[in-house]
Simulated scan of single mutants.
Amino acid sequence: MPENVIQSSTELQSNTVKSSKLANIYKFRELGLLAFIIILAVAVQFRNKSFLSVENINDMITNTAILSILALGMMLVLVTRGIDLSIGSIIALSGMVAAQMVSTYQNLNPFLVILLGIVIGMICGAINGVLISKIGLLPIIATLAIMNIFRGITFKISGGEWISSYQMPDSFVSIATGKTLGLNNLILIAIVIYLLFFYIINHTRTGRQIYAVGSNPDSAKVSGIKEGRILLLVYTIMGGFAGLSGVLWVSKFASAQGDTASGYELTVIAACILGGVSIAGGSGKISGIILGSILLGILNNALPLLNVSPFWQTGIQGLIILVAVIINTLVKRGVDRNNLMRRKI
Results as ranks from 00 to 15, higher is better:
Asn58Arg: 00
Asn58Ser: 05
Ser165Val: 07
Ser219Gln: 14
Asn301Ser: 00
Val308Trp: 13
Thr62Asn: 08
Ile83Leu: 04
Val268Asn: 15
Ile87Met: 13
Leu232Met: 07
Ala23Val: 07
Leu12Ala: 05
Met96Gln: 15
Glu161Val: 09
Ala65Ile: 01
Ser219Phe: 14
Leu115Glu: 05
Leu70Ser: 11
Glu11Pro: 08
Phe28Ala: 08
Gly281Thr: 12
Val44Pro: 00
Phe198Glu: 02
Leu131Gly: 14
Ala280Gly: 12
Leu137Asp: 05
Gln257His: 10
Leu22Tyr: 05
Tyr194Trp: 04
Leu33Ile: 11
Leu299Lys: 10
Val173Leu: 14
Val192Asp: 05
Ala280Asp: 13
Met75Asn: 09
Val268Pro: 15
Gly152Asn: 05
Ala302Asp: 06
Met74Thr: 01
Ala220Cys: 10
Leu33Gly: 05
Phe241Arg: 09
Lys179Asp: 03
Ile327Ala: 14
Ala270Cys: 13
Ala65Val: 01
Ser165Glu: 13
Ile175Asn: 03
Phe51Gly: 00
Arg47Val: 07
Gly228Val: 04
Ala220Gly: 10
Leu116Tyr: 12
Leu306Ala: 07
Ile321Ser: 10
Ser251Glu: 02
Leu116Ser: 15
Ser309Leu: 00
Ser174Ala: 07
Val119Gly: 03
Pro304Trp: 05
Asn109Tyr: 09
Ser164His: 03
Ser164Glu: 11
Ser9Cys: 10
Ala35Val: 14
Ser50Val: 01
Ile141Pro: 02
Ile69Ser: 00
Ile200Phe: 06
Arg47Tyr: 11
Asn216Glu: 06
Trp162Leu: 09
Ala271Pro: 10
Glu227Cys: 11
Phe36Gly: 13
Thr177Gln: 04
Ile316Trp: 03
Val222Lys: 14
Leu31Tyr: 15
Leu196Arg: 03
Ser215Phe: 08
Ala92Glu: 06
Ile345Gly: 02
Arg342Glu: 14
Leu93Asn: 06
Ser223Phe: 11
Ser94Leu: 12
Phe28Asp: 14
Leu108Cys: 09
Ile201Val: 10
Met96Tyr: 15
Tyr211Val: 04
Ile87Cys: 14
Ile132Lys: 11
Ala126Val: 08
Leu40Gln: 08
Gln257Arg: 06
Leu188Phe: 11
Val234Cys: 10
Thr267Asn: 14
Gly334Asp: 04
Arg229Leu: 08
Gly159Asp: 00
Ile146Leu: 09
Asn184Ser: 04
Ile66Asp: 00
Arg343His: 12
Val268Ile: 15
Leu138Gln: 15
Met122Ile: 12
